[in-house]
Design a protein around this nucleic acid. Structure first.
Lengths: 185, 185, 185, 185
DNA sequence: TATGAATGAGCTTTCATTCAT
DNA sequence: CATGAATGAAAGCTCATTCAT
């Protein structure tokens, strides 16, 4: 009688498990950092280790899934015709504060992983999309590229990741005060 | 065949071992980050595990030794009467490029270790010392504090740590182009 | 040639592993003392280190499992209405001979561990339960407390632990010959 | 410049070193137990590790030297014509309280080491010497042998070793209250 | 397909012992 | 002959990954 084994809820549970894993990973990555043990994620999701590996064969694929939401949110904002570059940067910053791992990983990939680079491209594209208009509006200097912005965003995210959560808003504020002036004409 | 036991080179090897450990740690920290396994350092130094622990009882004391040189160099520059804030920031940036771990650790301590915080203080003081003059020279805006500079410096170092070595100079250049404008009046 | 990797026998091996670990620990504790390396237990059980730690996260929990049988046996005897104090002491002595670590640990806890102290309490209570009757029967002097008995029992167990197995019965006999006279009125 | 190496005080220091090692070992064994690191002994003695090994090639030989004093004290007492068995047992008990390691090791050797067994013999002989007289004085029952006494003494010492120092006198008292009655006719 | 136990590699740390100086 | 650094073999423990059920 090996204690109480969670019942095999069958294939129909697959989608629910997947969702639970993503939600759990979001929490865990936020709380314990991107390097948290995967077993912690599985436990938090109430799911077996094996299921985690079935859905997400490695840490990166789990992270990608976790970050997809944030990414979508970002792209949704960027797609709105009235969204300015500042709006986009603002949202990224908010996301950095809430989930440093996401922005840092997306903008400054820790390993040369194909899939992560793809994400980075999406961010770059999204920023590039807002850039011409921002230039016209006199918000951005000529020399500043979308790549510069990606790097700046990532840089701030890396910093925020090292800062206690309660100091993040203030720190983000201070760094963007510098960077914004550096971006403006 | 147990591999080849390293001969006991005796006490005279102590100094050489210590130096080898520091050099190896510098490499390893640069390559694999500040969290790299200490055993890797010992291996890279060609030194037994025990010797590493004799010389440096914990990770921080090893790091302090590794970074002492850089710190001294920095303080030497800051002590020269003709050194400007830009000179100091420039040197820190160079150091960030060469040894990202140093600047990142000093400016944005990963753990609240007494000794690391002391280093941070040294850097902050050193920057603060150059600040009034830089303000008088019209190089720095009123609102910018030494703390802002420490954060900025750390932020760039964190970014450089994630970037392949050969892209570091260019990346540092680009980020400081933004930040410098943010700092100036 | 990395030796021969043990095949992963799957979850069905869990119960068997647990039992093997307990059995191995009983042997190892008896042979090498309670301070024996846990890795030795894992090896003796033919089980990976990780499995040992999964089943028993620390030394104490392993010991508790090992000793639970003995404890139950003891309490079963003490619960019988016709059991005398001598019977109980006799059984403890037998157990001391067979598994010195158990009695020594329970009666004279090496560390102030909550769970071990609880075991000690169980033994003390169990002896105390038989004491009044033994006094009435003229088998125990007035001044002798249950605590005295616990100490005496532990003391003998410690001694037996240091004595080669084949000399244990005789040694126990001799020591109890002294102690019994000390206990009687 | 490797710090401050203790000067080599030459051969004449040998005796002083030896004495310092014995004194240090006595302290260390008492404080940190018989299993304390030998390096701790060397440090406490202000002596190099190598010197420790020169004087005492293994832990046992160091222990023997440490215990020789106690042994001599014991034999001196036993040699006095007016010393009773009780006196000798009393002194052993005192020694047990002060330095549990000594009595435990001498009376119940942890390993079958020739030299330790010899010590045990000395204790047995010493007790045997006082036994006939104690029997005549009606202090000891006929069946009780010197070996019984050695075992009893060792047993108490083992117990005391497991008991916090401040409880030792009381515990010794209680156990000997039992044992003494067991010994008397 | 889900489960969670099994596995062992790898890391940190300690310490007995050796040995160049 | 003293010194103390060098050495590496454990030991404890964690975790990514595999795999029988």
């Amino acid at each position: 009688m090996p204690a109480e084994r969670r019942p095999n809820r069958g294939p129909s549970a697959a989608a629910a498990n997947r969702a639970a894993l993503i939600a759990a990973a979001r929490e865990v990555f936020a709380g314990a950092g991107y390097d948290a043990p995967l077993s912690m994620v599985a436990r938090a999701a109430g799911v077996g280790q094996g299921s985690l590996y079935r859905h997400f064969p490695d840490r990166v694929s789990l992270a990608l899934a976790v970050f997809e939401d944030s990414m979508a949110e970002l792209e949704a904002l960027a797609a709105r015709p009235d969204a300015t570059l500042d709006d986009v940067l603002g949202l990224i910053t908010e996301q950095s504060i809430a989930s440093t791992a996401f922005v840092a990983m997306v903008t400054v990939p820790p390993q040369p992983d194909e899939r992560i680079l793809a994400l980075r491209e999406r961010v770059a594209k999204l920023l590039a999309g807002r850039l011409p208009e921002a230039r016209r509006a006199g918000r951005v200097r000529a020399g500043v590229t979308a790549d510069d912005l990606v790097l700046a965003v990532g840089m701030v995210a890396l910093l925020l990741a090292k800062v206690p959560a309660r100091e993040r808003p203030g720190t983000a504020e201070r760094m963007w005060a510098l960077l914004r002036r550096g971006i403006e004409p």
